[in-house]
C-alpha cells in the first residue's frame, strides 16, 4: 500500500500539482453528444476539470446533467465527441489498458457465481497475479472492508451494503491511483451509507488514491470531498466548483463522524446547495434537486 501522507496540501485549494507531479485527471473542453432517434442530446458541454493526484472530487447535480457520462469518459467506456481527456498524462484508453483506475458503479455488479473472495480476486486473476499473492491481497482487502468472515459466501447471501463493500474492495484490488465511483452508496439506507462514507474516507486516506465520486447527496459530497463540482443539466455543464474547507489543516483521515455536526460542515452544505440552485428558484420543475 502506498503512503497516504501528503496527498494534498490545503483542502480547498484548486488543484495545483507540485511541479512535475502529473494530475490524475485532466479534462479539457470536452463535449459529448449522443445521437438518438429523437435527435441529438448534448450530454456534456465544454467541460474543464482537473483532479490532482490523491484528491477527492465529487460530482453533484440533478439527474441527467451528465455526471455518469463524464465518469464513463474518464473510464474510457465511451468516447468524447470533442476535447481532450487524459488520465495520469495518458489518453483515457491507454490508462484503461494500463489499469490506472478502479471503478465501482451504483449497483455492486458482483458476479453471482463467484464467492465474495472470488469476486474481489477477479481483477487480480484476469491480470495474472500469482495465486499466493492473490489470496494474500484478497484477505487484506476483505479485512479492510470488514468482510473477512464472509469470504466464502455468495453475493445473494449478502445485504446490499455488504455487496457494495465487496464491489469497493474489488475496485481497490490492484491499488489504483484513481478510483471512479458512480453513486456507489445510492441504494443504501442512511445508516449504512454514513458508515460506508467513513470507511471510504479512511480507505482513500490509506491508499492515497484520487477519487472521482458521483453523488446525489449534498451532505455526502461535503463530507467526503476536497472539492465539489456542481453541474447543471441540458446541456451538461459545470456550474461551479466549491472548495471544501473542512479540516483544512488535517489529513483526510481526520474526517470523522464528529465532522458531520460541526458548524463548518453545515456552512459547506449551504454553499453547495446555493451553488446547485444558483439563480433558479429552489424546487421548481420535476427534476428539482433533492437536498438530502
Amino acid at each position: 500500500m502506498r503512503d497516504g501522507s501528503g496527498f494534498r496540501d490545503g483542502a480547498g485549494a484548486p488543484p495545483q500539482p507540485a511541479s512535475g507531479a502529473v494530475s490524475a485527471v485532466e479534462v479539457r473542453g470536452v463535449d459529448k453528444v449522443f445521437e438518438t432517434r429523437t435527435g441529438q442530446v448534448q450530454a456534456l458541454d465544454a467541460i474543464d476539470l482537473t483532479v490532482a493526484a490523491g484528491e477527492f472530487v465529487s460530482l453533484i447535480g440533478p439527474s441527467g446533467c451528465g455526471k455518469s457520462t463524464l465518469m464513463r469518459l474518464i473510464a474510457d467506456l465511451d468516447d468524447p465527441s470533442s476535447g481532450t481527456l487524459t488520465v495520469f498524462g495518458k489518453t483515457a484508453r491507454h490508462a484503461r489498458l494500463d489499469q490506472e483506475y478502479g471503478i465501482a458503479f451504483q449497483s455492486a455488479g458482483l458476479l453471482p457465481w463467484r464467492t465474495v473472495a472470488g469476486n474481489v480476486a477477479l481483477p487480480l486473476e484476469l491480470h495474472g497475479a500469482p495465486s499466493a499473492a492473490r489470496s494474500a491481497r484478497v484477505a487484506e482487502l476483505l479485512d479492510m472492508v470488514g468482510l473477512t468472515d464472509f469470504a466464502d459466501r455468495y453475493p445473494d447471501q449478502l445485504s446490499g451494503g455488504m455487496q457494495q463493500r465487496v464491489a469497493i474492495a474489488r475496485s481497490l484490488a490492484e491499488q489504483p491511483r484513481l478510483l471512479l465511483m458512480d453513486e456507489p452508496f445510492g441504494a443504501l439506507d442512511e445508516m449504512t451509507r454514513e458508515k460506508m462514507q467513513s470507511d471510504l474516507v479512511r480507505i482513500s486516506a490509506e491508499t492515497g488514491a484520487a477519487v472521482v465520486f458521483v453523488t446525489h447527496s449534498i451532505p455526502e459530497a461535503v463530507f467526503l470531498s476536497d472539492r465539489v463540482v456542481v453541474m447543471s443539466p441540458r446541456p451538461g455543464r459545470i456550474r461551479e466548483i466549491v472548495p471544501m474547507r473542512l479540516g483544512a489543516d488535517a489529513k483526510r483521515a481526520a474526517r470523522t463522524d464528529e465532522l458531520r455536526e460541526e458548524r463548518a460542515f453545515f456552512d459547506m452544505v449551504t454553499a453547495v446547495r446555493e451553488a446547485l440552485h444558483g439563480g433558479a428558484p429552489v424546487g421548481t420543475g420535476p427534476r428539482g434537486m433533492e437536498t438530502r
Binding site: 484503461r96 489498458l97 489499469q99 483506475y101 458476479l111 491480470h127
Partner: peptide
Amino acid sequence: PDRIHEELMQSYAA
C-alpha cells in the same frame, strides 16, 4: 450478461 458486467470486463481491459 448485464451491461455493468460487460463494462466491468472492459474496464479490466479483458
